[in-house]
Design a protein around this nucleic acid. Structure first.
Lengths: 205, 205
DNA sequence: ACTATTTTGTACTGATGAGTAAATTGCATG
DNA sequence: CATGCAATTTACTCATCAGTACAAAATAGT
């Protein structure tokens, strides 16, 4: 706890304290979802891991579906930010795509990104599922756009952008399943290495 | 129904009838698991889809965990068979690897293969999970072996076999999530196309 | 101090669904 | 015919867990 803080919080601080608590709930939840799976995790478990009780979670988040939705929204938000960032970079289309992909892979090894990949949309309720799909579509569109630009400027080999996007995404999503965050391999290196492989291909040149 | 069959089945026939019923249960189950997710599918639902009752399922399979385990075992069996088949082929290491990969991708768009990918091991009970992991490890080993052989004979570019296997597997697993079996794209073509992309890479040559 | 609002906890409800007990039918065989 | 086994059903039990009602602190505003 921060002992330098005034015991008389301003409205501003209060809002941020509330937000911090909400975030703490989401972080605890996402870690448990990733470790044990959404359906194997009860909100009682999540609450217990924070030393609070279930209704407190319901005070900050409406229901379990929303807890999951917020988690994946954070992950997807990071991905969308990465796409925005890549879009405004200098260099060839291939350069921009690779920059995006490295970041994309890194995010997928992070708490919220992992949750995005590991969450099958069947887990969400219909409206949340629609929102989830919508955001994922957006990432996919962004990735395809970068591919198309790369092909256009000749920095990428011509190919079907849709299939290329699925192939690349699949390869870079998979670490969400196998990468051990506690392991020795750094996500950054891993991400770079994988993107490199995808660019070069497996045939000798 | 087959009206030419004798109404006095031999022990042989009886065994095969029993096996056929068991298979029908597994097929109905796997399709529902794939469509709605394991946890969203009750065995009552599966039974209803076959016009039978839940205890009948329990007559053929011990419990829900085993139903899922049998499903993934079938999918993994197909993959292992594909690896065996590829291993005994003529051609370079790259040829054998590609043959395996195409088949691998196809299987992942099929009922039982899709289930293998979509099933997080958290869904299974500890012992089944161990069995599941063991079989998946075997596929991984086989894939790595093919990669190593390809590098050895110069038909593949040198690379880290472990990372290559994860990258390739990720790319070819992903269709289990996005490919629509009812859609117009044929799994065979798709598989070939994806493997081709992975071999060539995205950089122009 | 007094009231309203926010935060948090205790103790419930209610639904869902895995798994089972026991009865039923059919067939096979001594 | 009696006995036993396989297949199948109806009608349960029982545990889990999402979600809620309501009370009790804490906090803020007046």
């Amino acid at each position: 706890m921060d002992l330098t803080a005034s015991p008389f919080p301003s409205p501003e601080e209060k809002r941020s304290v509330r937000a911090a608590k909400r975030d703490a709930v989401l972080r605890a939840a996402v870690q448990m979802f990733n470790a044990r799976g959404f359906h194997q995790t009860s909100l009682d478990d999540v609450a217990a891991s924070l030393g609070i009780s279930k209704p407190t979670i319901y005070h900050y988040l409406g229901n379990k579906d929303q807890v999951l939705l917020e988690c994946v929204k954070i992950g997807l938000g990071q991905l969308i930010a990465a796409a925005e960032d890549a879009r405004t970079r200098p260099g060839t289309g291939a350069d921009r795509l690779c920059a995006f992909l490295v970041r994309y892979a890194e995010i997928n090894m992070d708490d919220f990104g992992r949750c995005v990949i590991r969450t099958g949309d069947e887990a969400l309720m219909p409206e949340s599922r629609e929102r989830f799909r919508e955001l994922k579509r957006r990432i996919d569109t962004d990735m395809r756009t970068l591919i198309i630009e790369g092909i256009a400027d000749g920095s990428l080999a011509p190919c079907d952008p849709k299939l290329a996007a699925f192939t690349i995404a699949g390869a870079l999503n998979w670490p969400a399943r196998w990468h051990d965050p506690a392991g020795s391999e750094s996500p950054e290196e891993l991400a770079r290495h994988m993107v490199d492989m995808l660019c070069r291909g497996f045939q000798p040149r």
